[in-house]
Simulated assay, not measured.
Amino acid sequence: MSHMVLSVTSVNKSFGDVVILRGVSLSLAPGEVVALTGESGSGKSTLLHMIAGLEPVDEGEIIIDGSNLAGMRDSASAALRREKIGIVFQQFNLIPSLTVAQNLTFQARLSGKTADAAALAASLGLTDHLDKYPEQLSGGQQQRVAIGRAIAASPKLILADEPTGNLDEQTGDHVFDLLLSAARDQNAALLIVTHSTRLAARADRRKHLSRGQFQ
């Protein structure tokens, strides 16, 4: 059996009296692409945030590349996130005061690694925009920078939360293509939340959340 980059086992999560996730289990191997679908409020983003160590688990365990998030201090969780996880959100979350080149290498610098901004830009079709600032880019270009930033440190796991949600279909397809190729080039596991059944069909597997459980 191959080493799993991500193992989620019997995870429960509630906010007050509202149960968000109940007994959710999921695993991803290196290079595997899994699409997470479900109606709004089904717990998709909450699950992603817990995997990223941004939200604590009530019960169950989440193990990323051999490290158990349960009981992990915030500083250790942040270090794991920097070194092992790349995150792409629906909102681009770029740093407005940094150029494209600086945004691309920001995550890698945080994790103490070096990244080649020019090579990243070339792979993302951003070569002509390295000296520009986020406000000078289109939405699709900004999301490509966000993908570049997420993969710059060669993460083991890429988490993408509705990365095409703010984009038109054609641009969204291109962004999805870039995410898939980036994950496969680096043999990283990719867990992508999407409302698009068309895009989800292109993943290796699809997991559908409904009322806090996989259907």
Results as ranks from 00 to 15, higher is better:
E169P: 02
K132D: 15
K113H: 08
Q141E: 13
V175N: 02
L159E: 05
Q141N: 03
E135C: 12
L130K: 09
A118V: 14
P134F: 14
S181Y: 04
L120P: 04
G148W: 11
T105W: 08
R149K: 12
L178T: 06
L159Q: 02
R202A: 13
N103L: 15
Q143N: 09
G172P: 01
K113D: 06
N166C: 05
I151L: 13
L104Q: 07
T171A: 13
E135Q: 14
N103V: 15
P155R: 02
K113V: 00
I158H: 12
L179W: 10
G172S: 04
F92I: 00
I147R: 01
L178A: 09
L157T: 02
D128G: 04
A117Y: 13
N93G: 00
A101L: 04
A152K: 00
Q90R: 00
I151K: 05
N93D: 03
G139L: 07
D116S: 05
V100D: 09
L124S: 07
N93I: 00
A188G: 04
Q90D: 04
L126E: 00
L159C: 02
R149A: 10
G148A: 11
T99A: 09
A188W: 05
D173G: 11
Q143E: 09
A117S: 15
S181F: 07
Q136N: 12
L190F: 05
D185K: 11
S111H: 07
R109D: 14
G125A: 08
S154A: 05
S97G: 00
L159W: 03
R198E: 13
Q141G: 06
A160R: 04
G125L: 08
A150W: 02
Q170S: 15
S154F: 00
Q186E: 02
G125C: 08
I151G: 10
I151D: 10
T197R: 12
L104M: 07
P134L: 13
L178I: 07
L94N: 02
Q102T: 11
S138R: 06
L199G: 13
K156C: 04
S154D: 05
Q102A: 15
L191Y: 04
L104A: 06
A150S: 06
Q102F: 14
A152F: 01
F106W: 01
V145G: 12
L126V: 00
L98G: 01
A119V: 13
T127S: 15
A189C: 02
G125K: 05
D173S: 13
G165E: 01
Q141D: 06
V193S: 10
T171Y: 11
D161F: 08
A183M: 00
R205F: 07
L180W: 06
L110T: 06
D168K: 08
V193D: 12
L157E: 03
R202Q: 14
T164I: 03
S97I: 05
F176H: 01
Q170N: 11
T197S: 13
S181E: 12
